[in-house]
């Protein structure tokens, strides 16, 4: 193979390409140094380049992380910090309690998230409706998003958690957990409604034309043509909001819900050791990091799909 490549020369590319698929590139470069084809030379150069790039990346990582660690460990307060935040015994002692609190976080998250997905969609649909009779609904939805996006979430949790029970109206929930959860749900619904709306806006108007031309009604067009495409589009940003909500469930701690953060605070106050807070942080990470990776995967997949669609 090597000789044909050499004899054929650079001009006859066809011969080289024909021979290519079968060759074991490692063997050829090993025995026939001087008669390497251009393709093999290029491939070897590419390999060297990628090896060099990986080496540089590894060294840079070690230097940066090592430097940061050194800075941390040599800081004057480190021994103190180590004892109050990284106490292994404390960690072991309080981890089960914090885990129990975290289980409540997870349950709250699931319930609130389902509420957010439904309420957010309803608000988004109210905002895009054109029927005149539904104008009050549209107005209400607009005010809702403006208000609940405009007020800090922590403040909403306070206001709802302490304010609603204080009204003493029959029928209204008095449990601070439910009231605070409602605040979180409203706040996130306002954001998620905007995410849905941008997805709906992103569906090309020609899709609507095609659907109407087939005789589908406006409602059927929304249900079978626009929404399925819109929701597919917004899955990655929605997952992003999921991650944020998972963390913000900790805000319910301030109205007395004993979830992971609150539980950790209680444990920390017990012996003036903050290690339980670290345990809570670790637990949050255990959930949010996989979720963030999941978002990456979904985003990459949708990018690939769009790319494929663009080519066609």
């Amino acid at each position: 193979m090597a000789t044909t490549g050499g004899a054929g020369g650079p001009g006859t590319g066809g011969a080289g390409v024909d021979g290519l698929p079968g060759d074991g590139s490692g063997a050829t470069s090993a025995d026939g140094g001087p008669v390497l084809s251009r393709q093999e030379v290029r491939r070897a150069a590419k390999r060297r380049r990628s090896l060099r790039d990986r080496l540089i990346a590894a060294v840079a990582t070690v230097v940066v992380i090592g430097g940061l660690l050194a800075l941390l460990l040599t800081s004057p307060g480190w021994p103190n910090v180590r004892d109050t935040f990284f106490d292994v015994d404390q960690f072991r002692e309080h981890f089960p309690d914090v885990l129990g609190g975290f289980w409540l976080d997870v349950k709250l998250f699931v319930v609130i998230e389902i509420g957010v997905l439904i309420l957010g969609l309803l608000i988004a649909l109210s905002r895009i409706t054109r029927a005149p009779i539904l104008f009050p609904l549209r107005l209400l939805a607009t005010v809702f998003t403006d208000v609940f996006r405009g007020v800090p979430t922590v403040l909403l949790v306070y206001l709802f958690g302490f304010g609603i029970p204080a009204l003493e109206l029959s029928g209204l929930p008095t449990n601070p957990m439910i009231c605070g959860g409602l605040a979180l749900c409203f706040s996130y619904s306002a954001y998620v409604a905007e995410v849905y709306r941008s997805g709906i806006d992103g569906v090309h108007p020609a899709q609507r034309s095609a659907s109407l031309a087939l005789g589908l009604s406006e409602a059927q067009t929304l249900r079978h043509v626009v929404l399925p495409q819109a929701i597919r589009r917004v899955v990655p940003p929605l997952l992003n909001d999921f991650v944020a909500l998972q963390k913000d469930v900790a805000l319910l701690g301030i109205v007395g819900v004993v979830e992971a953060f609150r539980q950790a605070q209680i444990a920390a106050a017990d012996q003036f050791n903050y290690t339980p807070l670290l345990a809570a942080a670790v637990l949050y990470l255990c959930v949010t990091i996989p979720m963030a990776r999941g978002v990456d995967v979904v985003q990459a997949r949708s990018r690939r799909r769009r790319g494929a669609a663009g080519v066609a």
């Binding site: 095609a210 031309a213 005789g215």
Partner: peptide, 17 residues
Amino acid sequence: TRRRLGMVFQAFNLFPH
């Protein structure tokens, strides 16, 4: 009316999902 007529568009407008 739209139910009685069929229309085909320049850009196909098939439903991608």
